[in-house]
Design a protein around this nucleic acid. Structure first.
Lengths: 170, 170
DNA sequence: TATTGTTATACTCTATAACTATA
DNA sequence: TATAGTTATAGAGTATAACAATA
């Protein structure tokens, strides 16, 4: 109903030796997206395991690096999560001395966030490991294909609402 | 390092009015994949909310429909999750009379799984709602683009290992 | 011995709600 | 009144380990 894929529908490869047929699921975007996510995450963990830095913690570190002094609220919005959830991530990163909070002098409600020297070292190591992890997947694509894939994914999440920060439905 | 995207790198669109720069994250496949997943999941929940059928529960129903009599182990492998996790999903679906367990007569360790009449009705309703949800995203792509996207995602998870069922590392 | 299902448990992630201090 | 941060808490999802029945 949503797309024509009568003969060319992608199915799981034989080397997975899976015991079931996928049927209707082969037409579901979210199903394939999730499998891709799981595959990526499992490889991420196998590669980064020793660092014990989750993808989200890593993303937060990168965001603070490129936006020094940003707030927890800003980060939460950017990664589509609740401020209390972000709080937990920030706490963990602070506990291992990767970032620090400094109360803003302009608006004393705000905690400005910065990456410490230790945090920078952590990021450097993590980037190195991650680039190995990334390569295991990106090498499956040509440069043009990769550009297309990123564009497609962007088209999926572009314009997404952030429920916690929408105005009330009146 | 992993791919060239000097000028054409996909960035977040302006209509999201996000307060931060994404920096290095723009080059990370997993980051875009996750944002796409979040966007899709939020729309899924908004659409299917009343049915209270998670994407995984839905997937399990579809899998049992296309593989009547399949086992919990088979389902767990197919969806890359632990057998104990699958157990919880099966229990929930059985509790609302969507599926039933029948002990196999050939191998009495196995519970063969079947979708009940109630379960079929649930699937019918869910499919209807989901097709509306799907359309909100698939209409952003041409038929050819969609075929490419599915193929790309398949390329990412093809050959993924299922850790729980690999042989021991000796 | 190995496998299927099961149970108990614990851990992580997440959001909600209520609170504080500021604005 | 509204916002940034905080805390407590509860729910969902997940995996691990141990076990029973069966192969």
């Amino acid at each position: 109903m949503s797309c024509d894929n009568g003969t060319a529908k992608p199915t799981l490869t034989a080397d997975q030796v899976l015991p079931v047929q996928y049927g209707e699921l082969n037409d579901i975007l979210g199903f394939h997206l999730r499998l891709a996510n799981v595959a990526l995450f499992q490889d991420y963990q196998a590669t980064m395991g020793d660092l014990s830095l989750t993808p989200k913690q890593f993303a937060v570190l990168e965001l603070i690096l490129i936006n020094p002094g940003t707030s927890q609220i800003g980060l939460a919005q950017s990664l589509r999560m609740d401020k209390a959830t972000m709080m937990a991530i920030i706490n963990k990163l602070e506990a291992r001395n990767a970032i620090e909070r400094r109360q803003s002098k302009i608006d004393r409600r705000r905690q400005e966030l910065f990456v410490t020297e230790d945090g920078q070292k952590l990021v450097d190591t993590a980037r190195q490991l991650r680039s190995e992890h990334e390569a295991r997947f990106t090498t499956r694509f040509s440069a043009d294909e990769l550009k297309m894939l990123f564009g497609f994914l962007n088209r999926i999440y572009a314009g997404a609402k952030i429920p916690a920060y929408e105005e009330d439905e009146a």
